[in-house]
Design a protein around this nucleic acid. Structure first.
Lengths: 112, 112
DNA sequence: CAATATACCTAAGATTTTTAGGTAATGCTA
DNA sequence: TAGCATTACCTAAAAATCTTAGGTATATTG
């Protein structure tokens, strides 16, 4: 993935959307899901993911449940009520962003 | 503009594309052009623009010409040969990014 | 003549990410 | 069964990019 830089700022949007779709997920699961959904195109690093999860939790968008699976701890995240609203916000911001970029980058024809 | 964060990483793409379309531009002109093209949605700050221009120049993507207009200096930027290739790269990266985000964020229907 | 617009710039701080680790259990395979 | 990959969590230093908040100077407009 050579266009890593472009993903800057979109991580929390991705996390929130996945949790909206899947109910609850744990960190490692999110990294695998993103890799699968994008056919390996986007690999979320753990150094980015965990701080982002903690921040979303601190902001009140996510809540946490611990669960013991195979003698190993899992930390499940799910949307709070507030988080559910935030998903919609983030998605419409992303939509707006994409529209603006298309206005800027292909005034008439296709992007390329 | 509440979705400022999403623009992180896309500034150099915007600059390169505008220079590709317009031949040559000076910094202030770029800020005004972006504001006009996006109906005020995206306002490039000078604190972001000038460092970005200097970096693109240092990387060999842009070349500079000074010009005196109305007793005031203008610094015109234009693409180098290398910069012309970079425009294509950046645009296809942006295209790929948008596709990936759409895969992730609207698996079936529209984005919203 | 003061404020706004034009036109360039930098530096400190904030945010987000990469890079590069650390810990520990489970599963697979040579 | 030793060793390596995978699963699963985490942090901290550094890099990258941006905002904020200045600075300088000329031209235009009310």
């Amino acid at each position: 993935m050579s266009n890593k830089k472009l993903y800057r700022g979109s991580l929390s949007t991705i996390i929130l959307k996945l949790l909206g779709d899947n109910g609850r997920m744990y960190g490692y699961e999110i990294t695998q899901k993103v890799k699968a959904l994008t056919a390996g195109e986007l690999q979320i690093t753990e150094g980015a993911l965990y701080p982002a999860l903690h921040k979303l939790e601190a902001e009140g968008h996510l809540k946490v449940e611990f669960e013991q699976v195979n003698n190993r701890m899992r930390k499940y995240y799910a949307l709070t009520e507030d988080g559910t609203k935030e998903v919609a916000n983030k998605l419409s911001e992303m939509e707006q962003f994409i529209q603006t970029m298309q206005q800027l980058l292909n005034p008439k024809t296709g992007l390329a």
